[in-house]
Design a protein around this nucleic acid. Structure first.
Lengths: 350, 350
DNA sequence: TGCGGAATTTGTAACGATACATATGGAGGT
DNA sequence: ACCTCCATATGTATCGTTACAAATTCCGCA
């Protein structure tokens, strides 16, 4: 049996309504329903849209017929005609997918979009090309009606571009741009502040923090929360140089191990991500230090991973599922038109 | 400033070519180029397709003009006319994304698709609805030209459906269906076989394995490899009942802890996934047992997680990135038409 | 009887691209 | 000079949908 069956692209689409109507093998269109009901194509279209200008009885008749033949509007045609795609695009950097970052956020988003005509589509993006490329491409080719993304920068190109073109979006993270725009953020200031306070309260005297790359807005937030806490307490501190939350785990581990071996080692660590927290744990373990006794660690947790990691460490939870829900519902409002920007900004807190 | 700007759906799309041609603000179409070059729309279309029936010189002139105005074909129109979408859909269960399962597979796929006209789009699917729903939807609405998916079952509904409709696909995992179809699989038989042999070689006398849910094909493969090894060695064994690789980590941990507390506890564990391996580790730790001395563990590793986990455990690597690459390139061949099925089947081994 | 106008329905044109059939123009043969 | 034929370019119809303008029916009322 040959694998080939699509010799010139257009095939009659023999799929049809899963069970009913064994008659016409072609995919039903408005025309099908028009012939079936004896109405004009236009009338059918408007009846399906529940246009009140069409008699109520006609609308019902048409809708019944549509259901009967298993009609589904052709999205390509709708899109060509209206410019709408009914798609929402989540641009995700695989850095984020690791350890389920993406998973729970996606879960929240699809939950919100269920019941709307919108579909979530994930556009993967790898850091070897500019962040803005996939966004440009989506807008340019109108691949979606709205965009969601994260890893926001203070002067984010994507935000600027999307605001200029008036394209609906919600991002995870804030910018420092003058014009307000929709966003959902996590209170990373509060996270590092609380984390530092916890460590100090349990006796740490020299704190070490690993921050996200400087280009991201939440680098500043995390740094600021951390600095505020250590200043308030007048305690020693270090900010990791040369490694970030995005560094490879091995690099983080080696860096931390090297630092712990030198004089005046830190005794309290703050990790804004699960990968780096695992790396800190392996470094301390390899040096024969004991977590909870020689060294303490507070990590941000977005998955259930640390519930299984031993020894247990202290974590602060970031609910990405909630963030996803919120981002999606804000985007829906934004796409619907009205809604002042002030209602489309949220900082979720610890 | 109002958020609203899309009062009736169709906006002039002020995006335009990022820099060049400040003249026409409208998105360039074939018509634009036709006017620019004084040729007919049809000619332009064919010239851009490098049709040899068009004079070489004309083709070059048209292509230059297209580049100059930053022309990109409208995918909605192309799709309506040709029935092609230039999209490949990866249907992913978020179960798989955890710990980077999805990430590396996606990386492999996008790497392969780079340079082709195809885009990878991820359709998330949650297990609370039938596996086949997203697939049906994609085929029905022609949301993609080809489908990739995993978690294949022996008598997989999706495979049956896609074969019936002749829709191109490649799945990760095999079926037991009579008609051959394209797939990429990992040699899970070999994995459990080798894992068991390793454990026995290091002195284990009672092996315990956690298998995937029974409905998946690789449940059988894993069980078979495991059974073969324990039979060959005539060693004691147990197959976890009531928990699977998909169970929540807490459930796995409690189950394992409970078992270890009873008589004749197993001294060697095989985990086909990272989550369950972490759970086994936490269970043994909580009971005061030491991995590598009281109990041994071999896990399948698909991310770099276990490089940071202490104590170190033995792992066997599954290269999902390679699987993704292979799946994508097989799908391309399948969509191109020819290529016998026998060349579109692969089992990647340890 | 006929007319304004509400309530419905219909026709036509477009969105942007491509398949197919047809037209144009000039070189070459008789 | 006429016709053929090849190389090249053009016209027309179409994919399925929706916006807009126009047409039809039917009613009450002067």
């Amino acid at each position: 049996m040959s694998l080939d069956d699509a010799e010139d692209g257009r095939q009659p689409n023999a799929v049809g309504p899963s069970t009913s109507n064994p008659g016409s093998h072609r995919k039903p269109t408005l025309k099908t329903i028009a012939e079936l009901t004896g109405l004009a194509v236009t009338t059918v279209s408007r009846a399906l849209g529940d246009d009140p200008l069409i008699a109520r009885e006609t609308r019902q008749r048409v809708q019944a017929a549509a259901a009967q033949v298993g009609y589904l509007p052709d999205r390509a045609a709708q899109r060509l005609r209206t410019g709408r795609t009914n798609v929402i695009s989540l641009v995700l950097d695989p850095h984020e997918e690791i350890l389920g970052y993406g998973t729970s956020m996606i879960r929240g988003m699809t939950a919100t979009l269920r019941g709307t005509p919108y579909h979530l589509v994930i556009t993967p993006h790898f850091s070897d090309t500019p962040q803005i490329d996939p966004v440009r491409h989506i807008v340019r080719n109108r691949m979606a009606d709205g965009i969601l993304f994260s890893r926001t920068e203070p002067s984010d190109e994507r935000v600027k571009f999307l605001m200029e073109t008036g394209f609906p979006f919600v991002c995870h993270g804030r910018t420092e741009l003058a014009t307000p725009h929709p966003y959902v953020d996590y209170d990373n200031y509060r996270f590092t502040y609380e984390a530092a306070k916890k460590l100090i309260a349990s006796g740490c005297r020299r704190l070490f923090i690993i921050l996200p790359p400087e280009r991201f807005t939440f680098h500043q937030h995390m740094r600021h929360g951390f600095m505020t806490a250590v200043r308030e307490e007048g305690i020693g501190f270090e900010i990791a140089q040369g490694i970030t939350l995005d560094s490879k785990a091995d690099a983080v581990r080696d860096h931390v191990a090297e630092r712990l071996a030198r004089a005046d080692p830190p005794d309290g660590f703050i990790c804004g991500g699960e990968v780096s927290a695992m790396a800190v744990m392996s470094a301390t373990h390899d040096l024969g230090l004991e977590i909870g006794r020689d060294v303490r660690l507070v990590a941000k947790q977005t998955s259930g991973l640390f519930d299984q990691v031993r020894p247990r460490i202290e974590t602060i939870y970031e609910d990405l599922s909630e963030a996803g829900r919120l981002m999606a519902s804000m985007l829906l409002k934004r796409m619907a038109g009205a809604a002042p920007v002030s209602e489309l900004q949220a900082v979720l807190t610890v």
